[in-house]
């Protein structure tokens, strides 16, 4: 009946939701990245394998990410700043959510763009003021969406995508992090 096609296989996601309700073990995933220091504040991180559905899994290809800092940080600027990768993650996750929710609600998307801004007081990481935190003070995402839907329906898409976003949750809620030396 519906001709909506945002390229999301919603049925597969709904089927997975049903299947995993009775199999919480299979729902346990571990995402993995491997990082190597190059020089200065320049490092590369590769991602290929992860664990899920009870076994080792692999992306089709290995992806390499370069992290560095800009020249105004007295660095070589071989790649983006690590904290900017958080913006990449948030944008990618929320956009995927918008597309999935739109598909599920029968809303045809024509274009979805967003800008993600993280406001950051770098006195924290420099140790210049102990009252300033290291991370973002706040993050603002602005979506521009062209779709066969009212403004209110589009606002609802964006709200629902936040509600089901892994990266939004990881940024807005505390997460326990363990860092150790092997």
């Amino acid at each position: 009946m519906t001709t909506t096609d945002n390229g999301v296989n919603v049925q597969a996601l709904l089927d997975a939701r049903e299947a995993l309700k009775g199999a919480p073990e299979a729902a346990q995933f571990t995402w993995r990245a491997t990082s190597t220091w190059k020089n200065g504040v320049h490092s590369t991180t590769t991602i290929q394998n992860f664990f899920g559905l009870g076994q080792e899994q692999s992306h089709k290809t290995k992806t390499e990410f370069t992290a560095d800092h800009p020249e105004i940080f007295a660095a070589e600027d071989n790649g983006i700043t690590p904290i900017e990768y958080l913006l990449v993650g948030l944008a990618g996750c929320l956009t995927a959510g918008v597309a999935s929710v739109a598909q599920n609600r029968g809303i045809q998307l024509r274009s979805v763009t967003s800008t993600v801004e993280g406001n950051h007081d770098i006195r924290g990481i420099l140790g210049a003021d102990s009252d300033v935190r290291n991370g973002f003070n706040d993050v603002k995402v602005t979506f521009t969406i062209d779709a066969d839907a009212s403004r209110e329906e589009i606002e609802a898409l964006v709200a629902q995508s936040q509600k089901r976003s892994a990266v939004y949750d990881a940024l807005t809620n505390p997460t326990s992090v363990t860092v150790e030396v092997a």
Binding site: A159, Q162, Y168, T172, N173
Partner: peptide, 18 residues
């Protein structure tokens, strides 16, 4: 420690009420 997602839970509630 509280979630930074207050704005969105309020947006969801506003949208549903409207």
């Amino acid at each position: 420690l509280f979630s930074g997602g207050l704005r969105n839970v309020c947006s969801l509630a506003d949208l549903k009420m409207r």
